[in-house]
Design a protein around this nucleic acid. Structure first.
Lengths: 147, 147
DNA sequence: CAATTTATTTTGATAATCAAATTATATTTA
DNA sequence: TAAATATAATTTGATTATCAAAATAAATTG
């Protein structure tokens, strides 16, 4: 097998595994009632912020209708609060509750932990190599991603 | 910014976008009637192979009920064929049609492009090192997060 | 102030998924 | 070998995530 094929195979496997790990860590952790996509909504709202529905939907690349139902559920579960803006009464502001912030932090910690444990294995030369390759992929995606 | 933060940032962006980009490349290409999950089924069946439902479902980490409906749709769209095994009549074998193989190859090309971009500016020694580094990370994750 | 634009929600639909029940066939065992 | 058990796949009934288009409400503009 060529290097290219090997790299492809490992990247595909790593990607699938990381998604799997993230989902399972969620489901077996303290926030077992959150799906990955719900966690991504929480992650996007972020701590100490009050965001509008449309900005959040745009960031997450979903329609505002989709976000409305997602937020309905997150409110039911106690992770998010919603209020109408007083300056512009068309606008709805959302922010995390304390429980939401805890979930945010847990997820952040998970990410930190994942990256730290991956990088711990590497010497500085390997680390640079990895960053270079990841950046290359990032550039490739940004290039492809103009629709 | 520390290496950790850089890596984390790139990873988050990559993970947020990769499925999206892959799907959009599909939809704007010759196989606009395939979703990304359908393409992953096609990818898993692979060319020149005849696979059983259960093996494929296991590989894809979905239940066999889920795969049954996925295969129903792929047959309707003309990408897959299904026949009962003669040796064991409980077993169902699936394989790609010619159209399915074309889709497989188109998807393969997308991945090839990705890897070529990823490996840009790397000499063959660095390629080898990268393979080692990625494999280590994969093995490490599987050890650390086993459920 | 009427028309238009903007922000959000609602509605009605489809994909992907699961667990549990069902069907058909094969294997084991008493 | 007939009955019990196991296996492979499908069907059923449900949920979640998603979209486009219609509806609602508020702000802006001409």
């Amino acid at each position: 097998m060529s290097n290219h094929e090997t790299v492809n195979e490992i990247l595909v496997r790593l990607f699938a595994n990381i998604l799997d790990i993230e989902e399972k860590c969620l489901r077996t952790g303290n926030f077992f009632d959150l799906s990955i996509s719900e966690m991504h909504v929480i992650d996007n709202i972020g701590v100490n912020k009050e965001r509008t529905m449309s900005d959040t939907a745009k960031d997450l690349k979903v329609t505002s209708g989709t976000l409305t139902t997602a937020i309905d559920n997150l409110i039911k579960k106690g992770y998010v609060e919603r209020r109408r803006s007083v300056e512009d009464r068309r606008v709805v502001k959302i922010k995390l509750t304390d429980k939401g912030m805890e979930a945010f932090k847990a997820h952040e910690d998970f990410h930190k932990d994942l990256v730290i444990s991956a990088l711990q294995q590497l010497d500085s030369k390997e680390e640079e190599l990895l960053i270079k390759v990841l950046s290359n992929i990032d550039v490739f995606f940004n290039h492809k991603y103009k629709f």
